[in-house]
């Protein structure tokens, strides 16, 4: 039954995408002037309660739960040492367009108009920081050559499906899609669907990557319109400073030597088969499997919280079937 429910949910998501895409496809057949352009411009603020671990502190090392990654990606992520980001050669790199999905803050949209016709030829989307922004071309321009460089802004085209802005992005940089070593390849593509409903904006981000993902990675967020406060991206110039890693050094862990990969078990008691991710960990059945193991091994868990204890991210309370032992943190 659970499988049926999850399948239904996945099918619903895919169905929603298919409908959106089909509508967009139909819209694409219309001449530019016949397409109605909705006004999505303005500042949109993400509630601080959504996916806060992902967006703020960052995920625990070795937590690939819910990501449809393959063995290659898992190997890459297992070797990841965050010191890599302190390489002088990487300091002025940015995140890519996936940062819109799991970045910390907000979005700002504005239209670019033709100086001749005043028609909207593109929508520009900026996150708060750390990525180059996205220019969504609405004028039907063709894809860049396969030889063209992938610049930091990538290449995005868009169309309207009803009041939904459907954005397709290619030519991306390889960059983190989860801040614990999971990277997309430069062959990945994204489809974003922005659905405004009055002052609420629902965004569905879908990444497909033939190199590292076995299924589309789908991520949804919502935003509130912010008429009184403009989102101000922090697009500061970047200069390279020493951040602890010498030029030419590459921090990483050899296979089997990453000491952080057991954190999910130590902190949240999430078994390795789940924390290692993979398409199967996107579906609810994984909960049933984990629950049985959780209950059976509960007596072995630490009884005192040791990490994130006062932030609301403490390990889960004891299951009712696990006896009287207390696992409430409190800790520090």
């Amino acid at each position: 039954m659970a499988r049926n429910n999850s399948q239904f949910r996945v099918n619903s998501l895919r169905g929603m995408m298919t409908v959106a895409v089909a509508l967009a496809f139909g819209a694409a057949a219309l001449p530019l002037q016949a397409q109605e352009q909705y006004d999505i411009s303005g500042s949109w603020v993400a509630p601080g309660t959504q996916n806060i671990m992902e967006r703020a502190a960052g995920p625990v090392a070795g937590n690939f739960l819910g990501m449809p990654i393959n063995d290659g990606e898992r190997t890459l992520a297992d070797s990841y040492n965050s010191g890599m980001l302190a390489e002088p050669e990487r300091i002025c790199q940015l995140y890519n367009q996936w940062e819109l999905a799991d970045g910390p803050w907000n979005l700002r949209f504005w239209p670019q108009v033709s100086p001749y016709t005043r028609e909207i030829v593109a929508w520009v989307i900026e996150g708060t920081e750390s990525q180059a922004g996205t220019t969504v071309w609405m004028d039907g321009r063709s894809q860049p050559s396969k030889l063209a460089p992938h610049d930091r802004a990538a290449f995005s085209t868009g169309s309207w499906a009803g009041n939904m802005l459907v954005v397709h992005t290619t030519d991306m940089k390889s960059a983190p899609i989860r801040r614990n070593g999971v990277f997309n390849s430069d062959e990945a593509t994204m489809t974003d669907i922005f659905s405004p409903h009055g002052d609420l904006l629902t965004a569905t981000y879908v990444m497909e990557d033939p190199v590292y993902l076995t299924e589309p990675y789908i991520y949804a967020r919502s935003y509130d319109r912010s008429p009184e406060r403009s989102v101000s991206p922090h697009w500061d110039p970047c200069i390279v400073n020493y951040e602890g890693v010498d030029e030419g050094n590459v921090p990483f862990y050899l296979p089997g030597k990453n000491p952080l990969l057991s954190q999910m078990m130590q902190i949240y008691h999430i078994p390795e088969y789940a924390s290692q991710g993979g398409a199967e960990t996107m579906y609810p059945e994984i909960r049933d499997k984990m629950k049985a193991q959780f209950v059976a091994s509960y007596h072995t868990f630490p009884k005192k919280c040791t990490l994130y204890c006062s932030t609301g991210f403490a390990p889960p309370p004891p299951p009712k079937t696990a006896g009287k032992a207390s696992a409430s943190g409190g800790g520090d």
């Binding site: 895409v21 496809f25 004028d139 396969k146 085209t157 459907v166």
Partner: peptide
């Protein structure tokens, strides 16, 4: 020119959306 843009828009967006559907590669060789 706008005329050219209008002529190619339907085809180009169709190509993009077909790419979304995964039926063809959106990267056109030149």
């Amino acid at each position: 020119t706008r005329a050219i843009v209008h002529r190619v828009v339907a085809v180009a967006l169709s190509v993009v959306m077909l790419g979304v559907l995964g039926t063809i590669s959106a990267r056109a060789a030149q």
